[in-house]
Nucleic acid binder design. Sequence first.
DNA 1: GTCAACTAGTTGATACATCAACCCTGGCCT
DNA 2: AGGCCAGGGTTGATGTATCAACTAGTTGAC
Lengths: 143, 143
Amino acid sequence: MTPDVLTTWQAYQRMRVLLNGQINRELSRETGLSEADFDILFFMEQSPETSVRSVALRCGLAWEKSRLSHQLRRMEQRGLIEKAPGAVIHLTEKGRAQIAAARDCHEAAVRRYFGDVLTPEQLATLTAISDRVVANLAPGAHH
Amino acid sequence: MTPDVLTTWQAYQRMRVLLNGQINRELSRETGLSEADFDILFFMEQSPETSVRSVALRCGLAWEKSRLSHQLRRMEQRGLIEKAPGAVIHLTEKGRAQIAAARDCHEAAVRRYFGDVLTPEQLATLTAISDRVVANLAPGAHH
DNA sequence: GTCAACTAGTTGATACATCAACCCTGGCCT
DNA sequence: AGGCCAGGGTTGATGTATCAACTAGTTGAC
């Protein structure tokens, strides 16, 4: 029983599309935040400083610079963040409130559709798989 | 050593973003096809018939109807497919040629960044994980 | 000093995804 | 018959992702 690579790929693709679609849909409906919004706000909330340099966001999230620039402009227009001189980004009170509310919703969805249906062994293996693939990719993670 | 769900989730997210980014970038650069183009053309090429009803595409790919409609319009403008009355889609000669060329490129990238770096056990586990998650999600896979 | 190369960031164009609001058409009910 | 409702398909608006081209500050060689 050799696991065909393409079979696994197709199964993985299906999970990727459906799982993230479901979680993003719930997040958007219940909090008004997109996945992109959530990633940015979550990163900033975790950060020990009250402000973050945009290059830290780029490295931490592995985003392209233009993507980040567009996203930050839209988020500033909505009042979730503020841009200060020197490529420094501040989390506004509104942004802090929204991420606090969204975190629980997001975590619950992740558990419901992902964590709760897998065994500890499966979770451990998936972590190993992800790290392996990313490590193999990372040397060429240029943009 | 309990594998924390959120740790696994973050590792998985990182793989998801970087891996699909890399493969899609290569596919686009070398063949001019997006992931969406590829999915449509691949499905149609696999189909035993020379034409496909659009509802079959919707179910097979688990796409929303408006997404499919927009995508088919763009692909028809580029001459990859043709729409016939009765919601029937034909693969043009140009489309057939492009998917034939792209398949090898795509498969090579999947092996290079995914299949070749994982063990058979890991591949088997990932298939099981994907099927489990999708099965748990599928009852509510409405749009 | 100055020129070249590099890096961070921005912008505009284009493609893609999602939502809501439509139009049809084919049952199905009474 | 008339009405009505569910489903497939389209469209427009909006948000998001990517690429290429551009600006501006830094560094380093000469």
